[in-house]
Simulated assay, not measured.
Amino acid sequence: MVAVIIVAVLAFVAGRLLGRLQDQNKRRDAAIQKRNERLHESIVTIAKAMDQGQCALSEGALRLVVLLDLRVEEGKPVYSERYRGLHTMYERIKHMPTHEARKQYPKSEIRKMDDEREGYEKELEDVILADVRQLLKDFN
């Protein structure tokens, strides 16, 4: 009789814990989906701006690579292989300072980095724009 009560209590506790775990998983999945939706919207907006010439290719590549990396997906594609031009640009300029960090460099050094970045933009323009257009197809 005592054994039956113990088993019943343990089954009840296990059921409650399982229910809590399922609720937690649902909340986590909903948060991931909401985050991915925001990332998706940002990715499409930046890609459209790049395609329309409203966003510098280097700036867009930096942003897109990071946003794509932040997506949580089952069977996540290897975006570095799918969008090689974007990733090539990212790898070439990721070391360059942005925003406030740029202000710590002399103007001559900033101009040198800008010239280097602009050269990469010219070199990779066709490949990056092809990636952007493919990305827009993939994400619509």
Results as ranks from 00 to 15, higher is better:
residue 92 R to M: 01
residue 92 R to E: 15
residue 110 I to R: 08
residue 105 Y to E: 01
residue 104 Q to F: 06
residue 108 S to T: 11
residue 105 Y to D: 00
residue 93 I to A: 06
residue 101 A to I: 03
residue 108 S to W: 01
residue 86 L to Y: 05
residue 85 G to K: 15
residue 92 R to K: 15
residue 95 H to S: 15
residue 102 R to A: 08
residue 91 E to K: 09
residue 91 E to H: 13
residue 104 Q to E: 12
residue 92 R to Q: 15
residue 91 E to T: 03
residue 102 R to Y: 09
residue 108 S to D: 14
residue 94 K to E: 01
residue 85 G to D: 15
residue 81 E to Y: 02
residue 99 H to Y: 14
residue 82 R to F: 05
residue 96 M to P: 07
residue 90 Y to G: 00
residue 104 Q to S: 04
residue 92 R to A: 08
residue 82 R to P: 05
residue 100 E to K: 14
residue 94 K to H: 13
residue 104 Q to I: 07
residue 88 T to W: 06
residue 109 E to A: 04
residue 98 T to E: 11
residue 85 G to V: 02
residue 109 E to K: 05
residue 88 T to G: 05
residue 84 R to N: 04
residue 89 M to A: 09
residue 84 R to G: 09
residue 86 L to N: 03
residue 93 I to V: 15
residue 86 L to D: 01
residue 94 K to Q: 03
residue 111 R to H: 10
residue 90 Y to W: 10
residue 105 Y to L: 07
residue 93 I to M: 03
residue 99 H to N: 15
residue 81 E to L: 06
residue 96 M to D: 12
residue 96 M to T: 00
residue 103 K to M: 15
residue 103 K to R: 02
residue 86 L to M: 04
residue 89 M to P: 06
residue 96 M to C: 04
residue 87 H to L: 11
residue 93 I to R: 05
residue 88 T to S: 13
residue 94 K to N: 13
residue 93 I to W: 02
residue 104 Q to T: 08
residue 107 K to G: 06
residue 92 R to D: 04
residue 97 P to K: 06
residue 107 K to W: 06
residue 88 T to E: 14
residue 95 H to Y: 14
residue 90 Y to D: 01
residue 83 Y to Q: 01
residue 108 S to V: 11
residue 83 Y to V: 02
residue 106 P to M: 06
residue 84 R to S: 07
residue 98 T to M: 15
residue 108 S to A: 11
residue 107 K to Y: 02
residue 84 R to C: 07
residue 85 G to N: 02
residue 107 K to L: 05
residue 90 Y to S: 00
residue 90 Y to H: 09
residue 81 E to Q: 12
residue 93 I to H: 00
residue 85 G to T: 10
residue 84 R to V: 04
residue 91 E to R: 08
residue 82 R to V: 02
residue 110 I to V: 14
residue 111 R to P: 03
residue 89 M to T: 07
residue 95 H to F: 10
residue 97 P to E: 07
residue 103 K to Q: 14
residue 101 A to M: 11
residue 106 P to D: 13
residue 101 A to L: 10
residue 97 P to Q: 12
residue 98 T to P: 07
residue 101 A to P: 07
residue 82 R to H: 10
residue 101 A to H: 13
residue 105 Y to N: 02
residue 103 K to Y: 09
residue 98 T to F: 10
residue 106 P to N: 13
residue 97 P to M: 11
residue 102 R to I: 11
residue 82 R to K: 15
residue 86 L to P: 01
residue 99 H to V: 14
residue 93 I to K: 06
residue 94 K to W: 12
residue 101 A to C: 06
residue 96 M to K: 05
residue 85 G to A: 14
residue 82 R to I: 10
residue 95 H to R: 13
residue 99 H to F: 14
residue 107 K to C: 07
residue 106 P to C: 05
residue 85 G to C: 15
residue 100 E to M: 08
residue 107 K to T: 07
residue 110 I to D: 00
residue 105 Y to V: 05
residue 83 Y to G: 09
residue 99 H to A: 12
residue 105 Y to W: 01
residue 98 T to C: 09
residue 108 S to H: 06
residue 105 Y to Q: 01
residue 108 S to E: 09
residue 107 K to Q: 13
residue 96 M to R: 00
residue 93 I to P: 05
residue 101 A to D: 10
residue 86 L to V: 02
residue 81 E to C: 08
residue 106 P to L: 06
residue 97 P to G: 06
residue 86 L to I: 03
residue 111 R to N: 04
residue 104 Q to D: 10
residue 106 P to Y: 07
residue 82 R to G: 00
residue 88 T to C: 02
